[in-house]
Simulated scan of single mutants.
Amino acid sequence: MTEKAPDMDHDIRARVVTLEHSSADKERRLSDLEAWKAQREIESARHDEKWNAMEARIDTRFSGLESSVGDIKKTLSHINWLIIGGIITGVVAFLIKGGFAP
Rank of each mutant, 00 (worst) to 15 (best):
I79D: 14
E20C: 09
I87N: 02
A101P: 08
A5W: 07
D59A: 14
G64I: 02
A53H: 06
R15S: 04
S22M: 05
W36Y: 13
H78Y: 12
D9P: 09
F62Y: 06
S67N: 05
R61Y: 00
K37M: 13
H10C: 05
D48F: 14
I58Y: 02
Q39Y: 09
D48K: 15
L65Q: 00
A24W: 06
L30S: 11
S77M: 06
V16I: 09
M8Q: 03
S23E: 06
E49I: 11
D25V: 02
I88W: 01
G85M: 04
K50A: 15
T75D: 08
V17G: 03
A56E: 02
R61T: 00
H10M: 08
E43T: 01
T18W: 09
K74L: 04
E20H: 02
G70Q: 09
D11G: 05
A93S: 12
A53T: 03
P102Q: 11
E27Q: 10
D48G: 14
V69F: 13
V16E: 01
G86R: 06
S31P: 04
P102F: 03
T60F: 13
A45K: 11
A35S: 10
H47R: 13
A38K: 04
D11N: 06
I58H: 00
V91A: 05
D48E: 15
K73F: 12
R15Y: 08
M1T: 07
L95P: 02
H21T: 04
A93D: 13
W81G: 09
S31A: 12
M8A: 06
T89P: 00
G64L: 06
T18G: 10
I42A: 12
A93G: 04
S63I: 02
T60K: 12
T18P: 01
F94Q: 00
I83F: 14
S67Y: 11
I83G: 10
T18A: 08
G90E: 15
D11K: 03
I12W: 03
G70Y: 09
D32E: 03
T75Q: 13
K4E: 10
M54Q: 14
K97C: 11
